[in-house]
Design a protein around this nucleic acid. Sequence first.
RNA 1: CGGGGAAUGGCGCAGUCUGGUAGCGCGCACGGUUUGGGACCGUGAGGUCCCGGGUUCAAAUCCCGGUUCCCCGACCA
Length: 476
Amino acid sequence: MAKITPRSQDFSQWYLDVIREADMADYAPVRGCIVVKPYGWSLYENMRDLLDRRFKDTGHVNAAFPMFIPMSFLQKEARHVEGFSPELAVVTIGGGETLEEPLVVRPTSETIIGHMYAQWVKSYRDLPVLINLWNSVVRWEKRTKPFLRTMEFYWQEGHTAHATHEEAWAEVMQMLDVYHRHGVEDCAMPTLKGRKSVNERFAGAINTTSIEAMMGDKRALQAATSHDLGQNFAKAFEIKYLDRDNTEKYCWTTSWGLSWRFMGALIMMHGDDQGLRLPPKVAPIQAVIVPIFRNDAEKSSVMPACERIFQTLKAAGIRVKLDDRDETPGFKFNDWEMRGVPARIEIGPKDVANNSVALARRDMPGKAGKSFVPQEGLAERLRTLFDDIHASLYKQAEDFQRANIHEVRTWDELKEATQDGWALAPITDDPAVDARLKDELQVTNRNFPFDQPEGEWVCAVTGRPVRERALVGKAY
RNA sequence: CGGGGAAUGGCGCAGUCUGGUAGCGCGCACGGUUUGGGACCGUGAGGUCCCGGGUUCAAAUCCCGGUUCCCCGACCA
């Protein structure tokens, strides 16, 4: 089997190697598009289902909207069309006929949502509208990379309408927190919540928030966003309601999204030189059983034990796989490590005799992570182990993140810090400042973290007084 | 979209300069020996050499056009 490029040697190549060798995805015959293979899709489904549960728990419902949007819809919101025009895919011919009006393949659905909400919302009694879409969208990206930036990508987009700005803002923050907790609790992924700079704001929003994650190469990845759209789309699409006081008012809307890029983040945050390391809650296979035998006699005692334990674990609700392929154990160990399976159970003649199994954990390489445990109570032991693995993956990622964020005050310190990690720096929220960071240091303002003490600072770029600091670093 | 690399069996590559029978390693199939950290031997299958034109007796190789991938920029979830 082909080995993968070491992470330290070439992080980008390592990432591509892992995706190929772990059977996550393949390149499609269309530029910038990928085929997600069953193993990768299974991971996506697990993440999607957990996130969907969180949406439902916060009162949202799912719906489906068309992938085609009339071009004129996008033009109704000036900044929105300006932001998205360069990356639109447009359908001009249908059924062999030139279309009266070109149809845009949705890059995001705010406009068609606005059109429909305008018809659905008449009274304050109709509010709030809390709808989420699981779909794919298309953006004609110049430079693509599997999961991180593809021309078509799968994601969810939530769209809500509210009576007041306070309520809309609370929604924006709630959903950002939902993303954050999905990262922390489901994916062992620490992220930093914050407000995007004016320059980085979503096209058409009055405020954009994000969670930012640090990858294994210390580059930043915007893992999810939540937007306060103010009344921009409400006014563009006439989303109005009659309030209790019998006056007509515009709604306040929000949108928020998380894409399969989150999977890319998972790979780049937790993976190592052996391949993927998947958090147990989202792993397609949580535990794999590898039978060990030398001859038919051993096989005939080992296999029934494997089968029995497989059934026990399956009945206990663990996503378990019995690997009965005709391969050597060593091959299987490496294969499942590449695929990031959190726990491996080896069962050989000695184990059958002792009513034990060898239990190896993916997050601890070699002998250190391997122990012999009784077959009795294995499901319970695994559940505890999964919690341990989750906690250890989270801690490693968080320690790494913390160790590579440097608090700085001056331009020189900022420059030095961002050579190798992120800076937490006093920065003016001004597009001209963002431009200087980009031009001179090839870094971007990731966000102004919400969780920071208020203070009086001097901007590291302009020398002007500022009240907040920003995370600054190289980004994907 | 600019700059740089690349495309030859599923994967990784040699062959291209200097045109002349398409090769190697891994993987795959079958048989045997193996099996607690990527086994070994034997036999075998698998190719429009990215696509389209052109030059030539003859093109993986030379020329023209296009497509895709990777890296670095600008743009972006």
